[in-house]
Simulated assay, not measured.
Amino acid sequence: MTFVQPVTLTDRGVRVEPLTLAHVDGLEAAAADGQLWRVRLTSVPEPGQTRGYVEAALAAREDGTRFPFAIIDEASGRVLGTTSFHDILPGPRRLEIGYTWLGRSSQRTSVNTVVKRLLLIHAFEDLCCNTVGWRTDNFNHASQRAIERLGAKRDGVIRGQAQRRDGTIRDTVMYSVTAGEWPEIRAHLDHLLLRHER
Rank of each mutant, 00 (worst) to 15 (best):
F3S: 09
F3T: 04
Q5G: 10
P6L: 05
T8I: 07
T10W: 10
R12I: 05
V14L: 04
R15N: 08
V16P: 01
L19Y: 03
L21H: 13
V24N: 03
V24K: 06
V24P: 02
L27F: 07
E28C: 08
E28D: 14
R38I: 10
V39F: 14
P45C: 11
P47N: 07
Q49S: 12
E55Y: 11
E55N: 10
A56N: 13
A59R: 14
R61C: 02
G64S: 11
P68E: 09
A70P: 01
I72L: 10
I72P: 00
A75V: 07
A75L: 14
S76G: 05
R78I: 09
V79W: 00
L80Q: 03
L80K: 00
L80R: 01
L80Y: 02
G81A: 06
T82S: 14
T83M: 08
P92S: 11
I97Y: 00
G98M: 07
R104K: 13
S105E: 07
S106V: 02
Q107I: 03
R108E: 08
V111T: 05
N112A: 04
N112C: 09
T113A: 08
K116R: 11
R117A: 03
R117G: 01
H122K: 05
E125M: 07
C128N: 14
C129G: 04
N130W: 13
T131I: 12
R135S: 07
N140C: 10
A142L: 14
R145Q: 15
E148K: 04
R149K: 12
D155F: 01
G156N: 09
V157P: 06
I158G: 08
Q161M: 15
Q161E: 12
Q163K: 12
Q163G: 09
T172M: 05
M174P: 03
V177G: 00
E181A: 05
P183Y: 08
P183D: 08
R186T: 02
L192V: 08
R198G: 14
R198Q: 13
